[in-house]
């Protein structure tokens, strides 16, 4: 199962109820958290993706299981353009020539719907408590969706004595290489 912070049961409901309920429920989430919407309305897949695009949330993807659609949406606030402050960065091209660990700090649900082969998943919110899973002697390439969370993660790692840390810019949104998935479903 894909990990989510909250589940919304909209099974059996017809349009526009899945959207209306999603709108209400997402208000209860913190920014960056993932909502799972369970629906049987076949139109909900296209509708939720369009809705997320309109209101500025991130539509991660949908999995279908036993005639139920499981949609994953990550709550975003208005994307303020923040200065990337961590200095050491690498591009996607550089990355292919380097050895080391690709650390993906997006939410588990985002990771499940597509990541670089061999990447390790530690969501940004868990990084501080799971830092002992990382090796300080290894080069670490931190990636997220757009480069914002990975910038914060790289700074956090540097502050904790990791010296071989690089932020991968841009993030997964512009990654053209192969994607590995942990779910049977599409974006």
């Amino acid at each position: 199962m894909v990990k989510a912070d909250k589940q919304l049961d909209a099974k059996g409901l017809a349009c526009p109820m899945p959207i209306v309920k999603t709108k209400k429920t997402i208000n209860e989430l913190e920014e960056g958290q993932v909502l799972e919407v369970q629906a049987t309305d076949k139109g909900s897949k296209a509708d939720l993706a369009a809705w997320a695009g309109t209101v500025g949330h991130q539509y991660i993807g949908t999995v279908e299981e036993d005639d139920v659609l499981y949609h994953y949406i990550r709550k975003c606030s208005d994307d303020t353009i923040e200065e990337k402050t961590y200095e050491k960065t690498v591009s996607h091209d550089d990355l292919e020539e380097r050895d080391g660990l690709v650390l993906d700090v997006r939410e588990e649900a985002e990771f499940a719907f597509g990541h670089m082969e061999g990447a390790k998943s530690i969501p940004m919110g868990e990084l501080e408590s799971r830092m002992d899973e990382l090796d300080k002697n290894q080069e670490i390439f931190v990636i997220c969706r757009t480069g914002k969370r990975s910038d914060m993660a790289a700074q956090l790692l540097a502050k904790n004595g990791f010296t071989k840390v690089y932020n991968v810019l841009p993030g997964m949104t512009e990654w053209n290489g192969n994607l590995t998935k942990n779910v049977n479903g599409g974006m």
Partner: peptide
């Protein structure tokens, strides 16, 4: 009402 509620739910 379907269009109206869908639009309102889309802010």
């Amino acid at each position: 009402f379907n269009i109206a509620t869908a639009a309102a739910a889309s802010d």
